[in-house]
Design a binder for these strands. Structure first.
Lengths: 196, 196
DNA sequence: TGTACATCAGTGAACGCGCGTTCACTGATGTAC
DNA sequence: TGTACATCAGTGAACGCGCGTTCACTGATGTAC
C-alpha cells in the first residue's frame, strides 16, 4: 500500500512476485517467464526472490496454485449466478471454465502443464487449490445420476468436453469464438438426468 | 543406411534431424529440445542444421509437420481397421487420436502448441499435414447428420471430447487409463444419427 | 521512551552454463568437357 | 575414363545473451530490557 519508496523491505514481496509472474505469463507467454523478469517487474533485484522461494520451480508452483484459486473462483461465481436447476448449474460452471481459459491463456496452460504434477507429493498450497477446483467440478456433476458403466464416467466426459473445447479455442481462433458454453453440450445435456 | 563413416555429407541430414527432434521430445520433453542436442544426437556439429533449416523455429515447424503426419496416419489406420458403420469408424478414428497422444506426449503437445499457428501463413508442409489430419476428423464426422443449430456443431463437440480426454489423461495419470476410446462417448454416440 | 542487538529481506557482483547464430574454412560430391 | 572446377554440406571456433544460483554485504525491522 504505502511502501512505494522504502528501498529494502518490500513488505509483500511473495504475493507480488506471484502476481508479476501471472502478468508476464499473459503478456509474454510461458517462454518469457524467468525469475529475473519477475523480479525486475516487481522492482527488486533478481536475487531477492530466493528469500521467498526455494528456486524457480517453487515459484512456478506458487503461481500455479494462485492460478487454480482464480480458476476455481471463476467457476464458482458463474455457477452460483446460474439458475438452480442442475443443467444450468453445470452450464454456469463450464462458462467459468471457458472464461478462465480464454482470459488467462498461458496461465491455463501452466496449471494444466504436465510437469507440475497434481497428485504427486507437491506443495500443499498447490494441492489444496487444485483440489478445490476439481471438487467444484465433481460436485456439480454429482447433481446428475452417475454413469451405470463407469464410476466417474459422466464426470470425465463432461470434463473432457469442456477442457477440450477450451483448449481448441485457444489453439484455433477460428473455432466459433462466439458460441457460448452451451454449444458443445448440445447433445449431452438432455441425456443427463438430474438426481432425485 | 550405409553412410555411417563418411565424415562429411551425412546424406539424409534433414529428415534425420527431424526424427532426432522427435526422439528427444519423447525422452526429455519440450524443455530439453535444443538445436545443439538435436545435432549432437545425429552425430553432427551444432552448426550443421543451419544448412537445412532457416533457424530453430523452422526446425520446430518441420518437426510439428512430421508429427501431424504420424498423427493422421494413426487415425486413418485405426479408422480403416474398424467396422464400416459410422459409429465404429468414428470410434476407430478417436482410438488413433488417443493412441497418438498417449504414445507421443510431448509431440502431441507441440503440434497443438499455440505458438505454431495452424492457420497463419506458415510453412506449407506444415499446413498440408495439419490439414490432412483435420480433414480426416471432418470427413468422419460427416458420416453423421450435422447439427441443426451450428454449422460444425457436432464436429467441434466430438473433437473437443476426444482432445480433452487425451489431454486430461496425459495430465492426470489417475484418470482411468484402462478405459478405451468409447468411454467418453458413452452418451454421445447413440445421439448421432448416421446419414442416409 | 530509549538503547542494544538479533533477525529479516533486500543489494549487487560474480559464477558457470547452455543456448542460437555467424563465419571462414574444407572435404566430398557431381557436372562439363 | 580422366581431369578441372563449381557447388554443396559439413567443421570448429567464436560471439554475445539471458538464465538460475551463490555469496558476502547491509540497511530496515522488531524485540528485550
Amino acid at each position: 500500500m504505502t511502501s512505494e519508496n522504502t528501498p529494502h523491505h518490500h513488505g509483500n514481496l511473495r504475493p507480488a512476485l506471484i502476481q508479476a509472474g501471472i502478468d508476464i505469463l499473459e503478456t509474454e507467454g510461458t517462454k518469457g517467464l524467468s525469475l529475473r523478469k519477475i523480479a525486475t517487474r516487481v522492482g527488486v533485484t533478481h536475487a531477492a526472490p530466493a528469500h521467498h522461494f526455494k528456486g524457480k520451480a517453487a515459484l512456478l508452483v506458487a503461481i500455479a496454485a494462485k492460478g487454480f484459486q482464480v480458476f476455481a473462483d471463476l467457476m464458482e461465481k458463474n455457477r452460483d449466478a446460474a439458475p438452480k436447476d442442475p443443467q444450468n448449474q453445470l452450464l454456469g460452471l463450464c462458462q467459468g471454465y471457458l472464461q478462465f481459459a480464454a482470459e488467462n491463456e498461458a496461465l491455463f496452460e501452466l496449471i494444466f502443464s504436465t510437469d507440475i504434477k497434481p497428485h504427486a507429493n507437491v506443495d500443499e498450497d498447490f494441492r489444496k487449490s487444485a483440489n478445490r477446483a476439481f471438487r467444484l467440478l465433481e460436485d456439480t456433476c454429482a447433481l446428475f445420476e452417475p454413469s451405470p458403466k463407469h464410476s466417474q464416467g459422466h464426470e470425465i466426459m463432461i470434463w473432457s468436453l469442456v477442457h477440450g473445447y477450451a483448449s481448441l479455442r485457444a489453439y484455433n481462433k477460428l473455432i466459433s469464438p462466439e458460441d457460448g458454453a452451451a454449444m458443445p453440450f448440445e447433445l449431452i445435456l438432455p441425456q443427463l438426468t438430474p438426481k432425485k
